[in-house]
Amino acid sequence: MDVKPDDPRRDDVMALLLEHLDDMRATSPPDSIHALDVDALAEPGITFVTARDGDVLLGCGALKELSADHGEVKSMRTTAAARGRGVAATVLSWLLAEARTRGLSRVSLETGTQDYFAAAHRLYLQHGFVDCGPFGDYTLDPHSRYMTIALD
């Protein structure tokens, strides 16, 4: 599995991100959907990466710089065919290593509270994230769970 920066506008990536957005719309109220679209993921200040096995897309994720010392994990998604193979853990580890390289002291994220997000909750807790309050432009929302990790 190879994780590296990639273009979110590639056809296979756009299909995965569309699937991600469709699932968010099916599980969360409209005002509680914070997933970025393809154009937002291509903006400066966001590092978008994919995990691939050769040419086969396995998953993706992004690191958004919120400030000089704070980043945010965005758009974590694994293809249905690759689930259970450690793709999300590998992508998350890559993003956290990148955050450390950039000198960020903290990385946060927002995820849903519904049962659908239970696997994501386990992943983030296993990597050392802890619950926190809203950060950045987020506000209290019963459909959002905020988590953060202090980087050493």
Results as ranks from 00 to 15, higher is better:
3 V>M: 14
3 V>L: 12
3 V>Y: 13
3 V>N: 14
4 K>C: 15
4 K>P: 07
4 K>F: 14
5 P>W: 02
5 P>L: 10
5 P>K: 14
6 D>N: 11
6 D>Q: 10
6 D>Y: 08
6 D>R: 09
7 D>V: 07
7 D>H: 10
7 D>A: 07
8 P>Y: 10
8 P>M: 14
8 P>I: 09
8 P>K: 13
8 P>S: 15
9 R>K: 14
9 R>A: 12
9 R>F: 03
10 R>M: 11
10 R>Y: 08
11 D>Q: 15
11 D>A: 15
11 D>Y: 07
11 D>C: 02
12 D>L: 06
12 D>S: 01
12 D>W: 00
12 D>M: 07
12 D>E: 13
13 V>L: 04
13 V>G: 02
13 V>Y: 02
14 M>C: 13
14 M>G: 07
14 M>S: 12
14 M>Y: 03
14 M>H: 04
15 A>K: 12
15 A>Q: 12
15 A>E: 13
16 L>V: 05
16 L>S: 04
16 L>P: 05
16 L>I: 04
16 L>Y: 03
16 L>N: 07
16 L>C: 03
16 L>G: 00
17 L>V: 02
17 L>C: 05
17 L>I: 01
17 L>S: 02
18 L>K: 14
18 L>I: 01
18 L>A: 13
18 L>H: 10
18 L>E: 14
18 L>T: 11
18 L>M: 06
19 E>N: 09
19 E>Y: 06
19 E>K: 10
19 E>V: 01
19 E>R: 13
20 H>D: 10
20 H>F: 01
20 H>E: 12
20 H>R: 10
20 H>K: 05
21 L>N: 02
21 L>G: 07
21 L>W: 01
21 L>D: 08
22 D>R: 11
22 D>I: 05
22 D>M: 05
23 D>L: 06
23 D>Q: 13
24 M>W: 00
25 R>A: 12
25 R>S: 09
25 R>K: 15
26 A>I: 06
26 A>E: 01
27 T>W: 02
28 S>W: 02
29 P>V: 08
29 P>W: 06
30 P>V: 02
31 D>P: 03
31 D>W: 02
31 D>F: 01
32 S>R: 11
32 S>H: 09
32 S>G: 09
32 S>L: 09
32 S>V: 03
33 I>Y: 07
33 I>V: 15
33 I>K: 00
33 I>E: 03
33 I>L: 04
34 H>L: 11
34 H>G: 09
34 H>E: 14
34 H>W: 12
35 A>P: 07
35 A>F: 04
35 A>I: 02
35 A>H: 02
35 A>D: 11
36 L>W: 08
36 L>N: 04
36 L>I: 06
36 L>F: 01
36 L>V: 04
37 D>W: 04
38 V>F: 00
38 V>K: 01
38 V>L: 07
38 V>Q: 11
38 V>H: 06
39 D>R: 11
39 D>F: 00
39 D>G: 12
39 D>P: 00
39 D>W: 05
39 D>T: 08
40 A>Y: 05
40 A>D: 12
40 A>L: 08
40 A>Q: 15
40 A>V: 04
41 L>I: 05
41 L>F: 04
41 L>S: 06
41 L>D: 02
